[in-house]
Design a protein around this nucleic acid. Sequence first.
RNA 1: GGUCCCAUCGUCUAGUGGCCCAGGACGUCGGCCUCUCACGCCGAAAACACGAGUUCGAACCUCGUUGGGACCA
Length: 463
Amino acid sequence: MVKTRFAPSPTGNLHIGGARTALFNYLFAKHNNGIFVLRIEDTDIERSKDEYTKDILDGLKWLGILWDEGPFFQRERMDLYREHAYRLLNQGLAYRCYCTPEVLEEKRKNALKEGRKPNYDRTCRDLNLKDPDRPYVIRFKTPLDGQVSFNDIVRGKITFNCEELDDLVILRSDNTPTYNFTVVVDDALMDITHIIRGDDHINNTPRQILIYNALGYKLPEFAHVPLIHGKDRTRLSKRHGATSLLEYKNEGFLPEALMNYLARLGWAYGDQEVFSKEELIEKFDLKHVGKSPAIFDMDKLSWLNSHYIKTSEENRIAGMLEGFLVKSGIEIDNREKLVPIVRNLKDRAKTLKEMAQMAEFFFSDEIIYDEKAKEKYLTHETKKILEGFLEGFVSLKENDEAGQKLLIENIVKETGKKTVDVVQPIRVALSGRTASPGIFDVINILGKKSVEKRIKRAIASIG
RNA sequence: GGUCCCAUCGUCUAGUGGCCCAGGACGUCGGCCUCUCACGCCGAAAACACGAGUUCGAACCUCGUUGGGACCA
């Protein structure tokens, strides 16, 4: 049974990189009919915050990455780590180290000065000390020589010399376990079969393998996926913009667009670009994950988002649009309008937020004219056009699009102007802007009364 | 600085010795459509980091160089 996990520290929001790692774990598990576990690594009490945990859980749920087990919290499992640490101690695979931080720092400095590696010099390794009055840490006995190598599913064989590895601390003097130790204990106890994580953990892997072996647990498979980089080609971080995945939600992105984009970032399935969640589960594999870091590209995300806006159920988009409108203080007088509005705006908007901005004018007859638009199209010259339009329009029935077309054609003929010069003033009168959906769509979504009101108001504004 | 990793169009990538004078997508540019803005459609420019080697043949294999990144300090 395949079992994967996503194990974030709640020391920050769920960002794009974390979300992708979670997604790969999720897709791999689901592809293999396996289990996906969520574990919160909150042992760093100083920096861990509940708000971050919430952001992570909410972000995953929004994306549609649902975990089968958990969330487990490491803070609740401290006894387990201590037990394991003492087990290694009792078996002679770890030792008490009484070196003080001051001494260690001194040694480190000297080593650096003399050009040696600043590793711990293993003073206490074979002393077998046991002093009840002095504080100590427990260190892991790393083999003095030999190699550790593993077959990474995406990287292939990776080898480290044990000499490079330290006798790392597994339990601090305050009785708290360290990162590399808790990870192994948890992954082993939770029966994780495949560890899929960012390649910033490659260097931790040999230490963890040694701990697995010492503890006598079965090794999992490892797959290190490249990190996502910003435009400057460094690891994605706060200064690259969005710090939480949920910001994309607030900006009007659809979760399926994010999921699709994230999956294709560093992974490919031939030439295919668009994938549903089900397709991703069916087609995802670690073998086609690339080895080099990928740069986050907002343009492509936007393109996918507009694709999903165009192809989603209009009702669903309308529901989400309503939320964005309400959020920007728009009063929705008539919810019947929402679906027709979506139908006309879905090809034009890249995000729901953008769509809400484009839709605002439908909801209030008190149009605020764009300054330049008014200056150009609401003039004494165009006043006649508006008056002519209004005169003809009042006698038309509701939603008589053929009649409306004829009316405009007639004005074009009578004035000798181009169609565009007749339509634009009307557009500005109705929407306040020079760009909008087709003029007849605007007219018929607004309805006869509203159109008349807005034309009159525009005429009045010219004075 | 040490260790490890990576290297195809601006970006995401296809490509595992001949199908590749390198394919798709985003973006860019040009055109068509058109009541505006979009959408859509058509077209164009755009890459195998460099140098050796292996081979009849290399984007694909080997070595080196350069560049980039991550971790540790």
